[in-house]
Deep mutational scan, measured.
Amino acid sequence: IGSLMYASIFGNVSAIIQRLYSGTARYHTQMLRVREFIRFHQIPNPLRQRLEEYFQHAWSYTNGIDMNAVLKGFPECLQADICLHLNRSLLQHCKPFRGATKGCLRALAMKFKTTHAPPGDTLVHAGDLLTALYFISRGSIEILRGDVVVAILGKNDIFGEPLNLYARPGKSNGDVRALTYCDLHKIHRDDLLEVLDMYPEFSDHFWSSLEITFNLRDTNMIPGSPGSTELEGGFSRQRKRKLSFRRRTDKDTEQPGEVSALGPGRAGAGPSSRGRPGGPWGESPSSGPSSPESSEDEGPGRSSSPLRLVPFSSPRPPGEPPGGEPLMEDCEKSSDTCNPLSGAFSGVSNIFSFWGDSRGRQYQELPRCPAPTPSLLNIPLSSPGRRPRGDVESRLDALQRQLNRLETRLSADMATVLQLLQRQMTLVPPAYSAVTTPGPGPTSTSPLLPVSPLPTLTLDSLSQVSQFMACEELPPGAPELPQEGPTRRLSLPGQLGALTSQPLHRHGSDPG
């Protein structure tokens, strides 16, 4: 009997000691992992102490058991019943959930998450997105703005933001810190809205009876308010094209079509300037034949640059190039080494500058006005007194259609001029006259002087055409309008007829 009692007592005591040691061994194993994590990542002392304290409290609170892992091991129907039991206190005593059906309560219970916070733990920081609604079931918390405590909340209090009033989550206007050990039930806004969409009859009752104890939403960050730039940057990543407008005076608003859609830094370009900076079609017209890549860069430059609305530039004389043409100036200075066709295309550029300027006046029909002061630039669209967005969009579309028509007509005119030049060069190729044979009589004449090349004649003739079109064909006081194609086609051969009437002889060394 004594040996039996000794064996039973010894066996029970050893089993008890073994169970104690097993729990202690698990605790030390998990604690060792936490300390190894702290050492590996070199976490500083204040945060390291918070980690160790939280682990110790969580171990004593749950005995080292992962409740979520245990809950996920059950089937979904059983999980709903378990969640309904775990959140029964909240669902029974909170006013917004009263009167809900059994199915609605089960769906809500599945969406709730339980959070346990030790003292000093910050649940929400200032500036964080308010993605959830919090219900306090135990403990107390404090809300701070800077170093000032603005509120202390306790059991059955609710904090967050009214989700039904805002389409997008706002930002917190303060820090939420736990004063004691707290148990909180939180539900994400997407989950709550999903359940309320499934039960629309409960939705009206819920929003009407929901009383948020403390609204954390920062009202200064609401979209459309003066301080909402940061919020707009976070939620409006896919922005449309940006529009900046110059201020319109009362006198300017009476004149229709007073602005032109141009790229940034293009205030001095012609009315047909689009795409790359520098001139019509993204580059100076005089350098068009020598740089074919300008047409390839036109599309990307047009689509990537934001639109700006600026006044037209001052008018340019008909014979003056659009500006920024070092290529043609070098050719004029060193005409001995340049291609003979460069002079002809220089005359073509003069005609283009004249036609572009006159067509700009035809479509816009307003006098040039000086540029406004820099303080009046970049007025935002949302400022008071601005035109409605639809009106601005319609004006932009009208300007775009005008620019497209202008570009089409300029292309047709350019093709006409090039065809005339090619026809003239085919009839009378460039050549130098040879020395004529002296006559049989004693009164022999001296050799004839060489005839100037055709490109120079073409430049003079085209300059005469531009001056003739600019000065004589337009009646005084009438708006400057571009001439039609047949009129220009008839004027060019008439001007060139006198020049080509002389018999030109080919030089023996000319390969053409």
Score class of each variant (00 low, 15 high):
residue 127 G to M: 01
residue 128 D to G: 03
residue 129 L to C: 08
residue 130 L to M: 03
residue 130 L to Q: 01
residue 130 L to T: 02
residue 131 T to H: 14
residue 131 T to W: 13
residue 133 L to Y: 01
residue 134 Y to S: 03
residue 135 F to G: 02
residue 135 F to Y: 07
residue 137 S to E: 10
residue 138 R to W: 03
residue 140 S to H: 12
residue 141 I to P: 02
residue 142 E to C: 07
residue 146 G to V: 03
residue 147 D to Y: 03
residue 147 D to G: 08
residue 148 V to D: 13
residue 149 V to W: 01
residue 149 V to D: 01
residue 150 V to W: 04
residue 151 A to L: 02
residue 153 L to Q: 01
residue 153 L to A: 03
residue 158 I to P: 02
residue 159 F to G: 03
residue 162 P to V: 03
residue 162 P to S: 06
residue 164 N to C: 09
residue 165 L to S: 09
residue 165 L to A: 09
residue 166 Y to D: 11
residue 167 A to E: 11
residue 167 A to P: 11
residue 170 G to A: 03
residue 170 G to C: 02
residue 171 K to G: 01
residue 171 K to V: 08
residue 172 S to E: 01
residue 174 G to M: 06
residue 177 R to C: 06
residue 180 T to I: 02
residue 181 Y to W: 05
residue 182 C to G: 03
residue 183 D to M: 15
residue 185 H to M: 05
residue 186 K to M: 14
residue 189 R to L: 04
residue 191 D to N: 03
residue 194 E to V: 06
residue 194 E to Y: 06
residue 194 E to N: 04
residue 195 V to P: 01
residue 197 D to E: 07
residue 197 D to C: 12
residue 198 M to I: 06
residue 198 M to C: 08
residue 201 E to Q: 07
residue 201 E to D: 10
residue 202 F to G: 03
residue 203 S to K: 14
residue 203 S to A: 12
residue 206 F to L: 06
residue 207 W to E: 03
residue 211 E to G: 05
residue 211 E to N: 07
residue 211 E to S: 07
residue 213 T to M: 05
residue 214 F to Y: 12
residue 216 L to P: 01
residue 217 R to N: 13
residue 219 T to L: 10
residue 223 P to E: 09
residue 228 S to L: 12
residue 228 S to T: 12
residue 229 T to G: 10
residue 229 T to P: 07
residue 230 E to G: 09
residue 231 L to R: 11
residue 232 E to R: 10
residue 233 G to F: 10
residue 234 G to A: 12
residue 235 F to P: 10
residue 236 S to N: 09
residue 237 R to H: 07
residue 237 R to V: 13
residue 237 R to Y: 09
residue 237 R to P: 12
residue 239 R to Y: 08
residue 239 R to N: 08
residue 240 K to G: 11
residue 240 K to P: 13
residue 242 K to R: 09
residue 242 K to A: 12
residue 243 L to P: 15
residue 243 L to K: 06
residue 245 F to D: 10
residue 248 R to A: 10
residue 250 D to E: 12
residue 250 D to F: 04
residue 250 D to L: 12
residue 250 D to S: 11
residue 250 D to A: 07
residue 251 K to W: 14
residue 252 D to W: 13
residue 252 D to N: 08
residue 253 T to E: 11
residue 255 Q to W: 13
residue 255 Q to H: 06
residue 257 G to T: 09
residue 257 G to K: 10
residue 262 L to P: 12
residue 264 P to Q: 11
residue 265 G to Y: 13
residue 265 G to A: 09
residue 267 A to D: 14
residue 268 G to I: 13
residue 269 A to E: 11
residue 269 A to G: 09
residue 269 A to I: 08
residue 270 G to L: 11
residue 271 P to M: 12
residue 273 S to E: 02
residue 280 P to A: 10
residue 280 P to D: 14
residue 282 G to K: 04
residue 282 G to L: 11
residue 284 S to P: 10
residue 285 P to H: 11
residue 289 P to L: 05
residue 289 P to S: 07
residue 290 S to A: 10
residue 290 S to F: 13
residue 292 P to H: 13
residue 292 P to V: 05
residue 292 P to Y: 15
residue 296 E to Q: 13
residue 297 D to A: 12
residue 297 D to H: 13
residue 298 E to F: 15
residue 299 G to V: 13
residue 300 P to D: 08
residue 300 P to N: 06
residue 303 S to T: 05
residue 305 S to R: 14
residue 305 S to G: 13
residue 305 S to M: 12
residue 306 P to S: 10
residue 308 R to V: 10
residue 309 L to F: 06
residue 315 P to I: 13
residue 315 P to F: 11
residue 315 P to R: 06
residue 316 R to M: 03
residue 316 R to Y: 12
residue 317 P to H: 09
residue 317 P to I: 08
residue 317 P to N: 13
residue 318 P to M: 06
residue 320 E to S: 07
residue 321 P to G: 03
residue 321 P to R: 10
residue 322 P to S: 11
residue 322 P to G: 13
residue 322 P to V: 15
residue 324 G to L: 10
residue 326 P to D: 13
residue 327 L to F: 09
residue 328 M to G: 09
residue 328 M to T: 12
residue 329 E to N: 04
residue 329 E to H: 15
residue 330 D to P: 11
residue 332 E to T: 08
residue 332 E to G: 09
residue 332 E to H: 10
residue 333 K to E: 13
residue 333 K to T: 07
residue 334 S to D: 10
residue 336 D to T: 08
residue 340 P to M: 10
residue 341 L to V: 09
residue 345 F to P: 08
residue 345 F to H: 11
residue 346 S to R: 12
residue 347 G to E: 08
residue 347 G to V: 11
residue 348 V to L: 04
residue 349 S to M: 11
residue 350 N to A: 08
residue 351 I to L: 12
residue 351 I to M: 06
residue 352 F to V: 10
residue 352 F to W: 13
residue 353 S to L: 03
residue 358 S to C: 13
residue 361 R to L: 07
residue 362 Q to F: 12
residue 363 Y to K: 07
residue 364 Q to T: 13
residue 364 Q to P: 09
residue 366 L to G: 13
residue 368 R to I: 15
residue 369 C to G: 10
residue 369 C to Q: 13
residue 369 C to P: 12
residue 370 P to G: 06
residue 374 P to Q: 08
residue 376 L to P: 12
residue 376 L to Y: 14
residue 377 L to E: 09
residue 377 L to P: 13
residue 378 N to T: 10
residue 379 I to C: 11
residue 379 I to M: 14
residue 380 P to Y: 01
residue 380 P to L: 03
residue 382 S to D: 05
residue 382 S to V: 09
residue 383 S to Y: 04
residue 383 S to C: 13
residue 384 P to H: 06
residue 387 R to D: 11
residue 387 R to G: 07
residue 388 P to E: 13
residue 388 P to A: 08
residue 389 R to T: 03
residue 394 S to A: 13
residue 394 S to L: 15
residue 396 L to W: 15
residue 397 D to Q: 10
residue 398 A to P: 06
residue 398 A to E: 05
residue 400 Q to A: 14
residue 400 Q to G: 06
residue 402 Q to D: 05
residue 403 L to N: 06
residue 405 R to V: 05
residue 406 L to M: 05
residue 407 E to L: 07
residue 412 A to W: 12
residue 413 D to Y: 01
residue 413 D to R: 09
residue 413 D to W: 03
residue 416 T to E: 04
residue 417 V to Q: 07
residue 418 L to R: 08
residue 421 L to Q: 01
residue 421 L to I: 08
residue 425 M to D: 07
residue 425 M to L: 10
residue 426 T to N: 10
residue 427 L to H: 10
residue 429 P to T: 08
residue 430 P to V: 12
residue 432 Y to I: 12
residue 433 S to K: 04
residue 434 A to F: 08
residue 434 A to L: 11
residue 435 V to D: 07
residue 435 V to H: 15
residue 437 T to P: 11
residue 437 T to S: 10
residue 439 G to F: 15
residue 440 P to M: 09
residue 443 T to W: 10
residue 443 T to I: 13
residue 444 S to Q: 11
residue 446 S to P: 07
residue 447 P to G: 10
residue 449 L to E: 08
residue 450 P to M: 06
residue 450 P to E: 12
residue 452 S to F: 09
residue 452 S to T: 08
residue 453 P to K: 08
residue 453 P to D: 12
residue 453 P to R: 10
residue 455 P to C: 09
residue 455 P to V: 08
residue 455 P to M: 09
residue 456 T to H: 14
residue 456 T to K: 13
residue 457 L to D: 11
residue 457 L to E: 07
residue 458 T to Y: 06
residue 459 L to R: 06
residue 460 D to M: 12
residue 462 L to W: 01
residue 464 Q to D: 08
residue 464 Q to V: 06
residue 465 V to A: 06
residue 465 V to C: 15
residue 468 F to W: 11
residue 473 E to G: 12
residue 475 P to T: 09
residue 475 P to D: 06
residue 476 P to K: 09
residue 479 P to L: 11
residue 480 E to A: 08
residue 483 Q to K: 05
residue 495 Q to N: 09
residue 498 A to M: 09
residue 503 P to A: 12
residue 503 P to N: 09
residue 503 P to E: 10
residue 505 H to S: 05
residue 507 H to C: 03
residue 507 H to K: 14
residue 508 G to W: 11
residue 508 G to R: 12
residue 510 D to M: 05
residue 510 D to Q: 07
residue 510 D to K: 07
residue 512 G to E: 08
